[in-house]
Design a protein around this nucleic acid. Structure first.
Lengths: 213, 213
DNA sequence: TTGAAAAAGGGTGTTTTTCCTCTTATGCGC
DNA sequence: GCGCATAAGAGGAAAAACACCCTTTTTCAA
């Protein structure tokens, strides 16, 4: 039987090449090609012979990130199993990836044996999660960390503007809202996110990757 | 002639193993062992036969990080060439690593050919820097990004307190200073760091690892 | 279609932040 | 001892942030 095709989507080329080396060394798996970002993958997939069995997907990438890409794959190519591969263990990120359709989530500090197990499990059972990810999932079912999912588009926009050193007056202008409405956004978020002031909002935003540094 | 010994110090095991695979594939280089953090390396080095020619050093690691470890190596084992390997391109970090004694600084998104070149160059000429790192070095010689080194202990303490959602009044109490003196700290920092307000201060602190999330 | 909920806007007052200026101390070279 | 730079400390006022309580408009599902 032919080996399973595993495509790596990862912008850190060194890591990408290195993982490809590992996967090619596993029996039953091969890496036909690698991509630097989600858009490259989508371009490749237009040719049916390029469709892999598994995608090892980095989360943070330029142009088209792992979350967006996984979401598109789920719609367009549901037969492809996506395993997320990330340095980042932030709950928000993990949950976003899983919601987008990832079948597994590996932190980049796993050993190669785990990677091989994950590939085999995803092929045979359809999913694979490490203990760490499973426990994070359970913990975040209904605590304040999942609040990020209840934030509306407008609130996210607001938070991003707060993080760019603007005053509320300036934010009001940018969002075409009255300063009073902005007060409302602020007060609502303070309560929702359990923070005391602007600083707390900024810290929350950074921790939950609403803004990037 | 014997191949050069290259030790990888990296807490992300998958990446560590992957890089080891790459390096072992280079002619003239071999990886005798790998470490998960700086402390493991120092333990290993107590046995003279374990002393390598080059260390590929991650920057962010638990227990003993890359900057501290490099500093110790410079003193204790000056013959070992350290090449920093990091996902992070923050100027502050790069400068700290180079000050600590790193002979090269590679971002983890370099291609394996660059890694091989870097190893060869460091062995033969004593250093290797990519264009990116060189330009960062030049740019940061005398602009505001190097300001972090001019910050006094008290100012760092102040910034840390700002980042913990305290008001200036509360900070004044914690630092046993009048709120008006705190005003002075704040105004001085705004000017030094070219930020407009508290938010800017917080962002600066996070970017430059004065505080951690 | 109606009524509950969410979004937008408003008033008023307090607290905190920000900006500008000023004095006092401290050290340092001559 | 004298001038001079430099840092700590502080006053006053304006701006912004924060808190609390309110009304109108829109949305959307029962």
């Amino acid at each position: 039987m032919n080996p399973y095709k595993v495509v790596i989507v990862e912008d850190h080329i060194l890591l990408s090449q290195a993982i490809a080396g590992l996967v090619n060394a596993f029996s039953k798996f091969e890496v036909p090609y690698q991509c630097n970002n989600g858009q490259e993958l989508l371009d490749k997939l237009k040719l049916p012979s390029n469709i892999p069995d598994v995608v090892l997907m980095d989360v943070n990438m330029p142009i088209l990130n792992g979350i967006e890409t996984t979401g598109i794959l789920k719609k367009e190519y549901p037969q492809i199993k996506v395993i997320a591969l990330s340095v980042e263990g932030a709950e928000g990120t993990i949950i976003k990836m899983l919601k987008a359709g990832a079948k597994g989530y590996l932190l980049k500090d796993v050993e190669k044996e785990i990677l091989e197990t994950a590939l085999k499990e995803v092929i045979s059972t359809g999913y694979y999660h490490t203990k760490e990810v499973s426990s994070i999932l359970v913990n975040s079912l209904n605590d304040e960390h999942s609040a990020v999912y209840q934030l509306k588009e407008r609130e996210l926009e607001f938070i991003k503007l707060v993080c760019s050193e603007l005053t509320y007056k300036e934010i009001a202008e940018k969002m075409f809202l009255s300063p009073k409405t902005i007060d409302g956004y602020r007060d609502a978020l303070f309560q929702k996110l359990h923070v005391k002031n602007k600083i707390g909002l900024v810290l929350y935003a950074i921790k939950n990757k609403i803004v990037h540094l």
